[in-house]
Design a protein around this nucleic acid. Structure first.
Lengths: 341, 341
DNA sequence: CATGGCGTTGAAACCGATTTCATAAATTTT
DNA sequence: AAAATTTATGAAATCGGTTTCAACGCCATG
């Protein structure tokens, strides 16, 4: 085990003090250019590597940013994280990632772990059964910024990055109505979560605006994974008359429904038109392609991270404190699964 | 800004020394049970939180483990990371993640960043154009363990977690031959990477064993993403006679090929049988379902991480140093895209 | 009763960069 | 030329656990 080079070694070598070496390496203005150059050269030559531990201890900053998502292996979430990674890397921070697996208890444990490992900031998409956000109060107390994205709980203390889910649900439903659908079913996840609750609202508003009746039995609850299509289609088939429109709250599940419907000999979009959500890769790979709402996952990640970092770099809390919600643009992408002339 | 509680505060409060408090909180055996209890209670009551900076500075450990993958938003990689996250969390470490975006330069930058942020260990899946692994030597010099998974370069110094890609390629090709295919095309990525090179080897060995000629023009190179199906199918259509079997090195691309083939009026598996790779969700959602090789991504992540952590917890280098390669089981999953009676 | 050994505790050094405060040197002002 | 600033550098304290080494108290052994 070779011993590490410290600023003391450099200082001794050059006949300077550690103070000056430290300042030089941090580009402090009070060091003569010539001295700085000399120190830089010596540092490189001696193979000096700054000791982050010591630096962190003094500055009380880790340059680590925590991210908690419900699931890492989801097309949407992994794109969000890719966006975050890009932004975080450019700014010289590190990403610490954990997943709640949709469990409130695991989420609480993760939040605590992040707190103990002293992340400089936290980005969270909530688990589906998280009832409140009290577990984040330690962060607030220590003024460590917390941002929510996608799955949020509205609160004055925290900033949220979202799309307008009501509008998106409205657009999707209106589109189905305009394609001539008379009975539109809607598949959603746990309605305590803002995203599903809002999409449902949009669905209801659209029906209302087109003077169509709201039939609560057409609202189906599901896990929304790639296997749930079977259950959903079974339920659809039992309905008399069968719905002729289907708005599913994510693409993996929409694709699964599409597959099951085709297996049962039901043609899409003629017998039933489908709209998904997210614009995952899968929506473009099944036949027919699925009409969907483009949720700019990568951009959500990038915007959330950039906001957080700007906040950390700026010395005041003003930026984030005055920003309560950032809404990104989302649009309907019309494809074969819903287009009937 | 409230001031933090330190072990000095606890010590003063109880009339003990910081030494004893530190020892008690670390379950050091030389502290009387009664004293330990008293200290624990005081710590909880005072809201003490250990300062990881100070602890890290002395112990020279961050409890952070770095992961570098080519792309985060890939079905395979995000499952690997999910597996890692599970293992890492149970062991009380943190996961620091970055992506190389398939660029050697970015990978080098990431490796350096990981080194500077002093991760305790590193898990890497290499970028496609990484020519060698010299950029990891700083880690070796400081005896920080580095493990490769999936995309590896074989080397005595490092441990790799893989599946037997030769065998997998062999199984896939043999299956197509047994289904009566006479001209089997193979779509692969950059052949400098072990995974594609080995699958190609397996393909060649299978042909050889069945006394089938090897036609180099049937080997197609591609980016293997969900848009490359168009190019590939175009090339297939130009071949005379057209291949009647297709072994694609990942499922997203296989699904894309399947889609394009159907668009051109070519029926799968009758006109051309398809085998993919990975067993991504998508292979089960397209029609027909795609026959594929099950690559246990989650398990790869879990095994890689557990090995690394065992190594970190054990005090010697022996465990990892003697392990050069860990091969996980993979199997062929036969589905509609290749089954013809 | 003296000596050895174990169990328990504490004083002080340490990890390595940062920061405050002081000081010497160079420059400008009067 | 003396005084007032400005510029450049250093000594020492600091961040808060961890670790080394010493010491004290208690019991057992001879």
């Amino acid at each position: 085990m070779e011993k590490e080079i410290t600023i003391y070694d450099i200082a001794k070598d050059l006949g300077l003090s550690p103070t000056t070496v430290s300042r030089a390496l941090n580009n402090h203005p009070a060091v003569k250019e010539k001295t700085r150059k000399k120190i830089y050269d010596a540092a490189v030559e001696m193979g000096y590597q700054s000791n982050v531990f010591a630096s962190n201890l003094r500055s009380k900053k880790t340059h680590n940013i925590g991210v908690i998502v419900p699931r890492l292996n989801s097309s949407f979430q992994s794109s969000v994280i890719a966006g975050m990674e890009k932004a975080v890397n450019e700014a010289g921070y590190n990403l610490i990632i954990s997943q709640s697996l949709e469990s409130y208890d695991k989420e609480k444990a993760n939040v605590l772990a992040m707190f103990n490992s002293r992340v400089d900031g936290l980005l969270v998409s909530l688990a589906s059964n998280t009832p409140n956000i009290d577990h984040f109060t330690p962060f607030i107390k220590k003024r460590i910024p917390v941002l929510f994205f996608d799955r949020i709980i509205e609160n004055d203390q925290y900033t949220g990055i979202v799309i307008d889910n009501i509008q998106a649900g409205y657009k999707a439903t209106t589109h189905l109505i305009e394609q001539g659908c008379k009975r539109i079913a809607h598949v959603i996840g746990y309605t305590k979560i803002n995203v599903y609750a809002d999409r449902l609202k949009g669905y209801k508003y659209a029906l209302m605006d087109k003077d169509m009746p709201l039939d609560e039995t057409l609202i189906l609850h599901s896990d929304l994974n790639e296997e749930s299509g079977k259950d959903i289609v079974e339920k659809l088939l039992k309905m008399k008359p069968m719905p002729d429109g289907l708005f599913v709250s994510n693409d993996a599940c929409a694709a699964s429904c599409l597959q099951q419907l085709k297996l049962k000999g039901i043609s899409v979009p003629q017998d039933i038109a489908i709209v998904g959500f997210n614009n995952d890769v899968i929506s473009r790979l099944v036949e027919p392609n699925i009409t969907t709402i483009n949720y700019p996952a990568y951009e959500v990640g990038e915007v959330a991270m950039k906001n957080l970092i700007n906040h950390l770099k700026g010395d005041s809390d003003r930026v984030l404190q005055s920003t309560n919600k950032i809404t990104l643009r989302s649009e309907l992408i019309i494809r074969g699964s819903s287009l009937r002339k």
